[in-house]
Every structure is written in structure tokens, then in C-alpha cells.
Write a protein that binds this DNA or RNA. Structure first.
Length: 692
DNA sequence: GCAAGGTC
């Protein structure tokens, strides 16, 4: 018998599901006009309110709610041929049991379920996972999809007044990515690790994003080593005018032939004649708003690694100081009120005064970046901050974000550049000056500002005294190694990883001992793993694997091809790779082992000039450093037993022993010289004690 | 103990 109250509105319950707590809170607040209440303690992400007499529950997930994995019987690495993973079935499991049960409990009572995850492919996938879970407990509910591109009242109301259907094809495209990443990554990781007997924590990994990223670093190192430096000569002179001196460089900048350079050099007279003076004014535009990549690059320039910068930014975000830090967008949305943002940071330490100044403007003309998307607004401060409330690193990041935001609303700077061409003997010289004449945004955003290079006031026809002249031998420079910031930029350019994962990828490569140092260099192990992948599993070593996958995913979205087709094809090509790789297993293992051995060389023995290597004591199995000239030389040093040891290529100026870096998971890397008796070390320990 | 992608 139908319940007589079935159509009574109070019995209807709407369930809204978002991808993160922040979105749930905002949506509940907007739709309820501020009346929504949090249910289940301060750390819960369930919000309840009523709307047109319906009860509404809004629940915030924490990213993906399901994870994909191999069935249990594939768990033990040693007992399964890695090649077997290529064809293995995949299973989906709840990623967070407690969230799944809360979700199901709410779904049971709901008549309408609205999926309001992020408006992107992964958001659609999370949505499909949610729908499947809810359908297990409630087959009668109606499902909708709310799509919004910002957590603003207009966008949110618009999305909920105009509900759509879940795009299952888009979700399947995400599922294809998940499957392919797991199949390729896990099978190749296990193959490399098993072939070289590196199991446990020392495993060797491979993946669609990490391997091409490692290859970038390895390739750059190869380029650097392959550069045959060309010698050239450069002439310069120091000139004087009214007591002020400046230097000028001869044209051409590079003399390839020494005799020619010498002849030119010898022709330089005691005086130089000013042939021309050219002055130009130019504008320096304020920078574009921060998205994740440009933020991480800027932080990297301040010597804060992307991984740390991201950690701090997430912390500042969760405490309300800055906006959501994972964004692609570099254009402020219309809905952002600059005036109220400026007002909310005007009491900040250091940067508040700049906000005050900007508030005097009648309207704002913010800069725009090239990337415009609708995910989130560019990173900006959301409330004032006091230095004393934050750690020094937190303050550094807050200040960077706040200054950048203020800079995007500030006036351009103006600079005057001067180019002076002079002649002395047979040689023409050029001197350049650059002077900021209007500071504009540079006052609030001085990062990376170039120093003024001032030239004295010179006019055409002047005759200046040559007070010094030089002929210098120089060498062409190899391309520079990547900084972490530059590597993130390069990854973005190549489409590798996402705003949320790029910094973690680099962190991974560092923690696994594939890369090290700043700027980044590959370890011998990283180089040999990359070489092995390039030779035997090349697709995973190139950015094209990602771009090809993107194309296939687009076809899934268009309904031209199915998830199974794409994953099936992918399995087929991986299986071909495996059959060849298994034949060459010993050869691959050999190459990588040589690389690993290469990394045990820590430097030069300060006593005999031999090689200091990491060794393992036969009896205690403990590692230590020993000299390659043993038993002639019996220099040994102890080593920390945990963590990765990497040579820094430097020696301690006090004891002459090599300096190494110790990397322990979860800790900050630290550097020490090998000699525990080193006087410098004792001194520094002493000062540290004093501080306490 | 594998990947990459979300988020805390």
C-alpha cells in the first residue's frame, strides 16, 4: 500500500555531493542563504539545510572516493611475473571507507542526488563513482549533475537552476587514464625492480609522467656533457666621462680568431669617440595573476621548492589566508571584488600599505594571463596576515601571493635604456644602460628586479678617456640545468602531469634517488633507468604517451570508441614491449646495476686521492665509506644507516672530505662532510647548543 | 612496497 504521505514534500530529501569540503560548505551556504548547519562535529564535511521545505544534505568528499587496483592475488611482487599485470583484471575499491558509508547512508534516504564535483574530467569520474555507489543502496533516486566554474553565488545558483545529466563518456575517459596508468606504471615498476633485485623501499619506478620528466633531466645532462666548448675572445674597455666610469664591450662580442682579436685589441687608443647615443623608453608590464605553475616558479626563484611551497600554500588556504592554490586559470573572474579584497588585507603587515594605496583608485584594471579557464580564480590573498601569526616560511609565501596580487592591479613601470656606440682605433664598442624611471608595480613586487645600470650623461661627438682595456678568453656555455621551477614549467608546456601533481612528481624523483641537487642533476641510477626505458619501453619515456592518451580520451568523450577498446589497445602495445623486454632482462639489469654502482662513488679520498665508495661491512651488514685503494689506504668513514646518500661533488673546506646529502623520507635533506672528527662540524654543533 | 589523479 502506497504511503499516504509519499508526495508530501517534507519527506523528500536532496543530496548534493561535492569533491571537497570547501565546495560543500560554499554551496550549502549559497543555496541556504547562510542558514546551513554543519552536522557531525567540526571536522565533518556534511552540511544540512532546507530549501522549499525539502531537506537538503550537502556532503564534501576528499577527491577520488574509489581507487583502482589489481586483485589480491597479484599483491606479492616476487610471486607474480610483472608481465602478468598487463592482462590482469582491475578492481575498484573504496578509497575512504568512512566517507563511503556516510555517502550511502545519506543516499538511502534521498530522492534526488545531485553530483556537484569539479567541472573537469576527474570530477566527472568521481561523480560516476558516486553514482554507482549510491545506486547500490537506492535504485529509485534521480541523478543530476551541477556544473559550475566558480564557487560564486551566480555560478552556483545558475548551475542548480539548470541541472544536467552526468557525462558518462567523460567519466569513462578518466577511467581509461586510471587503468592505463596503473597497468603501465605497476608492471614496468615491478619489472625494473625485480630484474635488479631492488625490492622493498628501494624499488625502481616508471610511469607515464615521471619517466618523461626524468628523461628531460637526463637529456639535459647529456647535452651539457656533449657540448664541445668553443673558445672565443672578448674585448672590453672601461671608459671615463666627467669622473664617472662605465664599461663597454667590443663588437663583435665574440672574436673566433685570436690573432684578429689581438690586432683589434692593440688598435684601441687612449681615447674613444662617441658615435651615437640612443635613448629609449619602454614599459614594463606588471605580471599576470598567479596560477599554480607561475606561483611555484616564483617560489622556486625564492629558493622554496615546489613541493614545500605547495604544502605551505595548502596550509594557508585551509586557514583562510589565501584562495585555492590548485588552479590553471590566470584571469580574474568578473565576480571577484578587488575593492573588498584590498580592504580585507589593508591591515596586513608589510603589504597592507600597498593595498591602502590601491584603494584610492576609482576602478581597477587587472592584468590577464594567457591561460583562461573556469576552474578557480587565480591565487590571491583572502585575508590579512600578521608576521607574528605565521612561521617565516608561511609569511614568505603569503607575502609573495599578496604582493603578486597587488602587482596585478598596479601601474606598469617605465624604464629608460641607453645604447652608446663608441669607437677607439679599429674597434667599435657598445655600452648599455638601463634605468627605472617610474617604479610602478615594481615597488610592491620587487622580486627578480634588475639592478639599474646607469651610464653617465654622454652625447654624440664626446671624446672619452679609455682608462682600461681587456682581452679575455671565454668559452661557450652549455645549456643550464633545470631548476625545480623551470622543470615544472617544462612539464606544463609538454602537457605532463597536472597543476596538482607536478610538484609531487618531482618530489618522487628526488626521494627515489633518480635526481638530486639544485639545479637538478640525474643520478647514475636515474640515467641508467632512463636509458633502459628509452631503449626497451620507449613509449613511456616520452611526453607523446600523454598526448596520445589525451587524443584517445577525446574519442571516448565523443563516443567514437569505448573505454575497453582504448585500454585493450594499450595492453596490446605494452604486451609487445614486455615480450621483448623479458628476453633482454639480464642486459637491462646489468645496465642499471652499473648505474647504481656509479652512485656509490662519493668523492675523492682526502688521504690518497683514491675513490671513496659506499661499502657494506660483511659482518655487521652496516654501510660505511671506504677508499678504493684499500688495503694500501685504510681511510674509512661512518655513514648514517638510514636514508639515501648522494654525492654533492664538493669537499669540506675544513677537513677536505667529500660533502654528501642524506635524504630520509619525510625529512628535510641535510648535508654533511664525511669526517665525523671534522673541526668545522664540532664548531657548528657547539653554536647550535648555544642557541638552545 | 607499484601509477597518476584528486584532496587534507
Amino acid at each position: 500500500m502506497p504511503c499516504p504521505f509519499a508526495s508530501y514534500k517534507l519527506l523528500a530529501m536532496k543530496l548534493i555531493i561535492t569533491e571537497k569540503n570547501q565546495a560543500a560548505q560554499r554551496i550549502a551556504s549559497i543555496l541556504s542563504k547562510g542558514t546551513a548547519k554543519r552536522e557531525g562535529g567540526p571536522r565533518s564535511s556534511l552540511y544540512v539545510f532546507s530549501d522549499d521545505s525539502d531537506e537538503v544534505k550537502c556532503i564534501g568528499l576528499r577527491g577520488h572516493i574509489m581507487k583502482v587496483d589489481f586483485p589480491d592475488e597479484y599483491k606479492r611482487w616476487e610471486e607474480i611475473e610483472p608481465g602478468a599485470l598487463v592482462e590482469a583484471e582491475l578492481v575498484k575499491q573504496p578509497a575512504q571507507e568512512s566517507l563511503v558509508s556516510t555517502l550511502k547512508k545519506c543516499a538511502k534516504a534521498a530522492s534526488v542526488i545531485i553530483i556537484a564535483t569539479d567541472y573537469d574530467r576527474e570530477g566527472e569520474l568521481i561523480g560516476l563513482d558516486v553514482k554507482r555507489l549510491c545506486q547500490e543502496v537506492n535504485s529509485n533516486a534521480r541523478y543530476f549533475r551541477a556544473r559550475f566554474s566558480a564557487l560564486t553565488p551566480d555560478e552556483i545558483r545558475g548551475a542548480f537552476e539548470n541541472l544536467k545529466e552526468l557525462d558518462e563518456n567523460l567519466a569513462m575517459a578518466g577511467e581509461a587514464r586510471q587503468d592505463i596508468d596503473l597497468i603501465w606504471g605497476a608492471s614496468l615498476t615491478r619489472f625494473l625492480s625485480l630484474a635488479t633485485s631492488r625490492l622493498g623501499q628501494r624499488f625502481l619506478s616508471a610511469g607515464r609522467v615521471q619517466s618523461p620528466t626524468l628523461a628531460l633531466v637526463v637529456e639535459r645532462e647529456k647535452e651539457i656533457q656533449n657540448v664541445v666548448p668553443e673558445t672565443y675572445w672578448q674585448l672590453s674597455a672601461v671608459l671615463e666621462h666627467d669622473g664617472a666610469t662605465f664599461s663597454a664591450v667590443a663588437i663583435p662580442k665574440e672574436f673566433k680568431d685570436y690573432e684578429e682579436a689581438k690586432r683589434a685589441f692593440e688598435s684601441i687608443e687612449d681615447y674613444a669617440f662617441v658615435k651615437s647615443v640612443e635613448k629609449r623608453e619602454r614599459q614594463i608590464k606588471p605580471p599576470a595573476p598567479f596560477n599554480t605553475t607561475s606561483f611555484l616558479t616564483a617560489a622556486s626563484n625564492l629558493k622554496v621548492s615546489p613541493a614545500r611551497a605547495m604544502n605551505v600554500a595548502e596550509d594557508l588556504y585551509s586557514r583562510g589566508y589565501i584562495s585555492y592554490p590548485r588552479v590553471d586559470n590566470t584571469v580574474y573572474p568578473e565576480s571577484l571584488s578587488f575593492r573588498s579584497l584590498l580592504e580585507s588585507i589593508r591591515d596586513s603587515d608589510v603589504v597592507g600599505v600597498f593595498a591602502d594605496e590601491l584603494l584610492k583608485l576609482r576602478f581597477f584594471k587587472p592584468t590577464r594571463g594567457r591561460k583562461e579557464s573556469t576552474d578557480h580564480p587565480p591565487i590571491h590573498p583572502t585575508s590579512k596576515a600578521k608576521k607574528e601569526d605565521l612561521s617565516s616560511l608561511q609569511w614568505k609565501i603569503y607575502e609573495l601571493v599578496a604582493r603578486r596580487f597587488l602587482a596585478t592591479l598596479s601601474k606598469e613601470a617605465r624604464a629608460r635604456s641607453t645604447k652608446v656606440v663608441l669607437k677607439s682605433g679599429a674597434v667599435e664598442f657598445v655600452a648599455r644602460g638601463d634605468l627605472t624611471i617610474e617604479e610602478g608595480f615594481l615597488r610592491v613586487y620587487p622580486y627578480g628586479r634588475k639592478k639599474d645600470e646607469e651610464l653617465p650623461d654622454i652625447s654624440e661627438g664626446d671624446v672619452l678617456k679609455v682608462v682600461d682595456k681587456k682581452i679575455e678568453e671565454k668559452k661557450t656555455q652549455p645549456p643550464p640545468r633545470y631548476s625545480e621551477g623551470k622543470l615544472i614549467e617544462k612539464m606544463e608546456e609538454l602537457g605532463l602531469g597536472t597543476k596538482s601533481t607536478r610538484h609531487t612528481m618531482i618530489q618522487n624523483l628526488l626521494e627515489r634517488g633518480y635526481i638530486f641537487g639544485s639545479p637538478i642533476r640525474p643520478s647514475e641510477m636515474g640515467t641508467s633507468v632512463s636509458a633502459a626505458l628509452r631503449k626497451h619501453a620507449n613509449p613511456i619515456n616520452t611526453p607523446e604517451m600523454t598526448s596520445n592518451l589525451e587524443r584517445e580520451m577525446d574519442r571516448i568523450v565523443e563516443g567514437e570508441i569505448s573505454l575497453d577498446d582504448v585500454v585493450g589497445e594499450s595492453r596490446k602495445s605494452l604486451s609487445e614491449i614486455f615480450s621483448l623486454m623479458e628476453e633482454r632482462k639480464e642486459e637491462i639489469a646489468q645496465t642499471i646495476r652499473e648505474g647504481v654502482r656509479g652512485d656509490t662513488v662519493l668523492g675523492i679520498c682526502p688521504a690518497c686521492g683514491g675513490e671513496l665508495r659506499i661499502r657494506v661491512a660483511r659482518s655487521s651488514k652496516k654501510r660505511f665509506v671506504g677508499c678504493s685503494s684499500y688495503p694500501q689506504c685504510n681511510v674509512t668513514f661512518p655513514l648514517p644507516q638510514k636514508g639515501m646518500i648522494q654525492p654533492m661533488g664538493e669537499t669540506c673546506d675544513a677537513c677536505g672530505s667529500p660533502i654528501v646529502r642524506v635524504i630520509t623520507k619525510g625529512k628535510r635533506p641535510w648535508e654533511i662532510c664525511l669526517d665525523p672528527e671534522c673541526t668545522k662540524k664540532k664548531a657548528s654543533v657547539g653554536t647550535r647548543k648555544k642557541k638552545k
